[in-house]
Write a protein that binds this DNA or RNA. Structure first.
Lengths: 218, 218
DNA sequence: CAAATTCCGTTGCGAATGCAACGGAACGAT
DNA sequence: ATCGTTCCGTTGCATTCGCAACGGAATTTG
């Protein structure tokens, strides 16, 4: 069995596929293994994205080289995460981002062409992989949609309430949020102290109550 | 040939498929036609999204019913546009949005199950449809990614410059934007007058120049 | 136990921003 | 020509917000 099969089988891209089947799938797809040292590139700006990447080991950063060469961190990838799938599927000619190893690591590259092609051996995983790919893209889509509705609010209060209501809708009126204050401020794209201020106001107005990460809508 | 085949063939979901082939594709997928009057629903909140919808005629609104029943317009759909594809692909159980006819119109519903299934007649369109679906989701993905990077900027100036640089990167340092002032302000989620103010500042500082919708980075 | 670190609320202040209102220019319809 | 409409710049004002700094409580480290 493949060295990282158990890790990879837990990737959402391979959900419904057994660790023991990953091997055959990778052969079918002609997957290539990439062993990288820290600061090596798994994908460079400007390259045509022809492969979907899957992280097997290590931590990788998706970065954008800004106008004056400044680097912006867009995402941090862990084993089981993937990259470049949107770029491949959208048929982008030149990658607008780089993927660079933050630690030594291993990634597998799956040829997007071969993912699309009906498998000559008509292996069952292949259809599942396509289905998963759709699922991955669509889920990210919905997540970003929700976040955008957040960020399109102009006031801190509106952003905050929208966020809290979203969580409340899933977990009920008493819930625990997965962020500390600083992370929440980052997520809402606002200043931490301004967040604290608004939280205090909302509590004093009796709109919400909270203690640490436990919140309640009133 | 199908009544709206020419319109549908121009939909991105069917790119690479001829108008004359849409007929066969729809039969293969068991597509259902829906003739709707104004204010009729093509999809209701809470329903399980099992179909991908394609607008053939009329104008439709994607709306979210807010906490107190307030309606938020999320998108406006024209012939060739589609809806619910993200929900289907992500396997969402209950639709968080409704799609309602703003004028009398016609939509076609394509069973997501049958889109996924390998076609028993192994028709060539089927694979192309899947590929297009991936493309549609991925493109929307990248678009939202870009917009999110915009909205995560805190100052108006930063948002504006980021937007202008993005357009400039595609069209060169002199370019025409597809928005008037009010639309641009909406896109950037800022106040129109504040946008004008900042535009004026940037011009007086010699950073940019503009006349109506023609802009230039200096 | 002491010291260091993290997390979070608080506050003062200046700058940025939203809001409302106005006026002018361009355009179109009657 | 006149009126109405749309688009856009301008401005005054109140408010919000980001920023920097501080301190306390809790937790971790040595």
């Amino acid at each position: 069995m493949l060295e990282f099969a158990d890790v990879l089988a837990r990737a959402t891209l391979f959900s419904g596929i057994e660790a023991s089947e990953i091997d055959a799938l990778f052969i079918c797809l002609g997957a290539k293994r990439l062993d990288l040292a820290k600061d090596d590139f798994a994908l460079r700006v400007g390259e045509p994205p022809v492969n979907v990447g899957v992280v097997a080991e290590g931590r990788f950063h998706v970065i954008r080289e800004d106008f004056e060469g400044e680097r912006t961190l867009i995402a941090s990838l862990e084993p089981g995460d993937h990259f470049a799938e949107s770029l491949c599927c959208a048929g982008v000619a030149e990658s607008p981002v780089s993927v660079v190893a933050n630690t030594p690591g291993v990634v597998w590259l799956l040829s997007f062409r071969r993912i699309l092609q009906t498998c000559p051996h008509s292996c069952t995983f292949h259809g599942k992989l396509l289905e998963n790919m759709l699922g991955v893209l669509a889920s990210k889509n919905l997540e970003m949609q929700a976040r955008m509705e957040l960020l399109s609010q102009k006031s801190i209060r509106a952003r905050l309430m929208r966020y809290l209501e979203t969580v409340a809708r899933k977990q009920g009126n008493s819930f625990v949020i997965p962020f500390n204050r600083e992370e929440l401020a980052d997520y809402l794209c606002i200043d931490r102290s301004a967040l604290s201020r608004e939280l205090g106001r909302l509590k004093s107005e009796g709109v919400i109550d909270f203690w640490k990460n436990n919140f309640k809508l009133l």
